[in-house]
Amino acid sequence: MTGGRSPEPTPAGNDASVTSLCVFAVCAVAPGDQPIAGTEALGHAESGPLTLLPLDAEMAALVQEVPAERFTEEALREHLADPAALEAYARAHHAVVTAASAAGPVVPLPLATLFADHDRAREVLSENLPRFREALDRVRGRAEWAVKVHLRRDDPPPDQAASDRGASAAGTPSAAGAGRAYLSRVRGREKDRISRRDAATAAAQRVHEAANTVAAGSVRLRPHGQEITGKDRLQVMNAAYLVDEARSAELSTVLAALRTDLAGSAIEIDVSGPWVPYSFTAGEES
């Protein structure tokens, strides 16, 4: 730990306003590094510049002075409950974390991690140096890839719809016959439902196993709802994989092969990345 004096610059002309300190991430730094070069335009609105708060010889926190009155518990609770404001905060946070990662490994902190000032931030963050170091080591040279599996909601096959109609219209007027037809339709639907479920589960499992052969770690996230996937798709798997930079081409190869295999089925595989390894910093991942 470098117990030196606070290096924080005071934003010029801002001395009258009260600020809090927002911490975005902890970065690995080497002497002379400028991990946030070119990020002047980033960060939360109406706030100071992004700066580095040294924690020890190898790590620094990426911080920004923000207007205290906009970052009280009350104000934040209100803002974060508003979808538009929540999005602005989230995207600002994400942009900073992502920009910082261009220079080296980064361990993000959750949105709105706030301290009264630089001294408080350094005091608390310094208590967690081993965790940060461990996480930085884990994600160094690696990226997170998001892999999602969707089941396309196709219309029922026309032949089945026709046979349903046939059973009731052309079919049997007797009550017993109608009952049998009904039961058979119910059984048919149940069978379809089960086979669809089994197929989707099996496909998701195949995707996971394939991705996992390349990955250094994996995390299952909660599947997204219809507002995100659209009405015609059901998300059956939402996962993240921690992949060595040198192996990301392999990931794309195994998933491309699976896509070819599953072509013609109702299964779709989506990939996005590289992400900063958000999902692999806490140390609970498999």
């Binding site: 518990e73 959750p110 949105l111 706030l114 909660r222």
Partner: peptide, 25 residues
């Protein structure tokens, strides 16, 4: 990036440190 992808990461992930201002996400 999809907003949902970002939200599930910036709200749920990362190393949680108790700040001076307590926001329960």
């Amino acid at each position: 990036a999809n907003l949902a992808d970002i939200l599930e990461r910036v709200l749920d992930k990362g190393i949680v440190i108790a700040g001076d201002i307590k926001i329960d996400l």
